[in-house]
Design a binder for these strands. Sequence first.
DNA 1: CTCAGATAGTTGAAGTCTCAACTTGTGGTT
DNA 2: AACCACAAGTTGAGACTTCAACTATCTGAG
Lengths: 164, 164
Amino acid sequence: MSAAETQWLDESQQSDWRAYIVGTTLLMDTLDRELRQEHGVSLGEYEILVRLSESPERTLRMAQIAESMQHSRSRVTHTVSRMEKAGLIRRSAAAGDKRGVDATMTDAGWELLQLAAHTHVTGVRRHFVDLADRDDFAALGRVMNAVSDQLVAEHPDFDDIRGH
Amino acid sequence: MSAAETQWLDESQQSDWRAYIVGTTLLMDTLDRELRQEHGVSLGEYEILVRLSESPERTLRMAQIAESMQHSRSRVTHTVSRMEKAGLIRRSAAAGDKRGVDATMTDAGWELLQLAAHTHVTGVRRHFVDLADRDDFAALGRVMNAVSDQLVAEHPDFDDIRGH
DNA sequence: CTCAGATAGTTGAAGTCTCAACTTGTGGTT
DNA sequence: AACCACAAGTTGAGACTTCAACTATCTGAG
């Protein structure tokens, strides 16, 4: 395969791909910046809070956080340490498995999430969802689901991130 | 605005948004990993090489690189320094403006780009372009162009990244 | 039961990005 | 000519991520 001639993209493919890259870059930077400016959390930290808030006892094992966000365990350790220092998360020994660590959202984390969620969802609407019609979004959803399916099929380790 | 009730996303919007986030995360990680493993460059470094290769004399001012990639000048300084150390880029004083610095792709950079471009385009096809039909991609392109347009209109500093 | 191998999580060093301060050079004003 | 606001780049410190090594615990084959 790698010896074969490269199959370049045609003009419209190239243009759609470029629109995707540029739009995604701008969008993610913007959503991250809005959360940082208004609430002092990054998009990644916000997403950890969301996952905790959706879990029983507002608690998740470190490994579950890592898997659901497709982050390394090490990265989660560092990030959660910072969030713990900031009072958003509390760590405790996991019941049943002495190796395990439970991360639990504190009340302060919950309070912050309420405010940040408003900012985030408003941003997602303003910069993304409200900008095109439903059919186009449905098409985008189909494409991106196909992308995930292909990558998961090829690399089963990715299975965790898909949730539900 | 920030006092108003949050307008949450409905089910299908949430599902399309989630598909977009998950698919994008997996896709970018994969494209980056493929380039690193096969050629030892990150996706960001690769994109700098692409921009240089498309420029007259294979040369660009530092600021132009920064603008076209929506990176800070500082970041470009650091990245180009690394790439210079790796022999992919050469720096020289810009003609006409003594403050300026020209970054020029070396022959080694060009050679690397030839190989890396094959890997990259093949990956983009395999993991993205070849996975859905043209109409869905066109819709995705429309949506992402609308996203860029909205963000640029709101924050004109972003104008640079859009190119063409 | 026991031990090898896997799993959970942490640690610290090295790499990368951000942010603010700084240097140098430019261009317009007076 | 002297000044001053601004632009181009760099620098170094601090923040965040990656990577490999490490500790502790669990599990299952024998």
